[in-house]
């Protein structure tokens, strides 16, 4: 029996998720915000893979889900970065607090 149990992985994922969340909510550079979101997704992936091994019904499905998540996250990163490029061209800034057109 392994001495590393499910909850330890979950707590680690929780910590990483919280770090990512805090960064996404406070970082000023849009690129970092995007990468923080990637970190949050990674934390979710840890959960999925951990459940695949230690969950109520262990199986390969969790890993498949993690793969899909990685795929979608990669697509998201690409699109997000492209949007950032377009924004930068127009506003000449990557600082998220200078992008406030939602107010108007």
């Amino acid at each position: 029996m392994s001495s590393v149990s499910l909850s330890v992985y979950l707590v680690l994922a929780l910590i990483l998720f919280c770090i990512g969340l805090y960064g996404a909510l406070t970082k000023r550079n849009t690129v970092i915000v995007l990468i923080c979101i990637e970190l949050m997704l990674n934390a979710v992936n840890i959960n999925l893979v951990a459940f695949a091994k230690y969950g109520a019904h262990p199986g390969i499905t969790g890993q498949i889900f993690a793969l899909f998540t990685i795929t979608v996250a990669a697509a998201e990163a690409a699109v997000g970065l492209a949007a950032l490029m377009a924004l930068y061209r127009n506003r000449k800034t990557v600082h998220i607090d200078e992008i406030d057109s939602l107010k108007h």
Binding site: A24, L25, D97, L102
Partner: peptide
């Protein structure tokens, strides 16, 4: 709070 910044909205929501 209505300052147009996505992060502010996100923070409030969270």
């Amino acid at each position: 709070m209505q300052n147009g910044q996505v992060q502010m909205y996100g923070a409030v929501t969270f």
